[in-house]
Design a binder for these strands. Structure first.
Lengths: 160, 160
DNA sequence: GAAATTAGATATGAAAAATAACAATGATAC
DNA sequence: GTATCATTGTTATTTTTCATATCTAATTTC
């Protein structure tokens, strides 16, 4: 692994850009790795006309029938106003249903439709392939260790 | 580690939001962990009046005296027009100098000033503390494994 | 029943990022 | 040498994303 973030075009002044200081930070590697994942995932979801947020929302709704928009917004760490447009889109495409909750008529009860579940299944398969591609070279233990480390970092939020 | 992304407010319909499907994806954990890192890093850099992008740019300039804006943009994976405003800010605050290159009078030769290097040193110390906080609970090997895995994922980009 | 709270929607604004087009300079082809 | 082409940085513009404030209808609290 060379000590460079990218190649330079010019022969003068600076040949390669050194990121030696940044390399010391795990956050730097997380950002760069996530950029790659996000970019590839976006391409992976394109054929299904899904974006990262709509894909995530669809899965959570299917896994949690009767979910409310505000619960979904909380789970996805986005603001309620921004959730509206995502749910709007999923409903317009008839991937989810949006019925008034029986117990609380302010709230919606979100559920995946058959079409939504079918599209989601296909998308999940594609995302699994995408991950297999990106994680190629990491054995099972390494992936488990990666996820464990990421979960630990994430847990730092609720604690401190 | 419970199988929930967040707690619900209502006793009806759904009590907890299950993210069991998403938990299977490393990308999901990367996104959530990175959100925590980014949020904490933003707070960490606030006292120095630095954002993630200005902090990164400042470090790269200091580590690579004579750097050009386009090289910096390449290294940071941002578009050249967006680099302009970042360099503008660093120059306005006199954290960097921006002289015409001797060899190519179209380009600028970017260098850190004394004030820039001093501010950067302080910021780096704060970021080191921030990382120590977030990585607390991971031993040295775990951190090394994390970074190794992230580097491998990142390398998938240039290859495929 | 009045006041406070909550779910969702709307409108708006701020920040980040991408695209197109331009002037100045440099490199290349002939 | 000159014409053509490519590159550096800039400007202008747009899109996208994300956050805030406010509104309604419904619910809860007292």
């Amino acid at each position: 692994m060379p000590d460079t973030a990218s190649l330079s075009h010019s022969p003068d002044d600076v040949i390669r850009v050194s990121d030696k200081t940044l390399q010391n930070f795990a956050g730097y590697h997380m950002k760069r790795a996530f950029n790659v994942v996000q970019s590839d995932l976006t391409k992976t979801l394109k054929p299904f006309d899904l974006r990262m947020l709509t894909y995530t929302a669809l899965i959570l709704i299917i896994d949690n029938p009767g979910l409310r928009q505000s619960q979904l917004a909380d789970a996805m760490d986005i603001e309620r106003p921004n959730m509206v447009v995502i749910v709007d889109e999923l409903e317009r495409r008839e991937l989810i249903s949006r019925d008034r909750s029986e117990h609380d008529r302010r709230a919606y009860s979100l559920k995946g439709t058959l079409a939504g579940r079918q599209l989601c299944d296909k998308a999940i398969d594609a995302v699994k392939a995408h991950e297999a591609r990106l994680l190629k070279g990491l054995d099972e233990d390494a992936v488990a260790g990666l996820i464990e480390a990421l979960q630990l970092i994430q847990a730092r939020t609720t604690v401190g």
